[in-house]
């Protein structure tokens, strides 16, 4: 383990987090936002990767606790992404378009508010 490689990974992680954050905030289309979230997630997991290389002690090549964290975090991110894509597909099936802009209020707005 050389410090330069860890530093390089750290910088890469920072770049990915920055890119993902920028995309999540500026891209209007939901699919692009979901992809940006996954870029951000990739950066996050890389941060954990740097941390687990630094925590390599006691004969382990890498910190096993941090590895467990990363695996669980990936599962959680996968679940979130899957739910987002599912809602997006349902929205497309209902309206034929996918946008986060609220629809203009239809006449009779407020009807069936509880149905």
């Amino acid at each position: 383990m050389t410090p330069t490689i860890t530093t390089l990974y750290g910088l890469l992680a920072a770049a990915l987090v920055g890119l993902g954050l920028y995309g999540l905030l500026t891209q209007p289309h939901p699919l692009r936002k979901i992809l940006a979230f996954n870029v951000l997630g990739g950066g996050l997991f890389l941060v954990f990767g740097v941390v687990l290389r630094q925590g390599a002690t006691a004969g382990f090549p890498a910190d096993p606790v941090a590895q467990a964290f990363v695996i669980i975090a990936i599962v959680v991110a996968l679940a979130g992404t899957a739910l987002a894509v599912a809602i997006m597909l349902r929205l497309f099936a209902e309206t034929g378009r996918v946008t986060l802009r609220p629809e203009p209020p239809a006449p009779g707005d407020g009807k069936d508010a509880d149905s």
């Binding site: 993902g20 954050l21 987002a84 809602i87 309206t95 802009r101």
Partner: peptide
């Protein structure tokens, strides 16, 4: 399952994902 409900749910989810990241 109405469009405005799905849009609201998607917005909520995206905000939440940002928060958890």
């Amino acid at each position: 399952g109405r469009p405005e409900a799905l849009t609201a749910a998607l917005r909520y989810l995206l905000f939440s994902l940002l928060g958890s990241a």
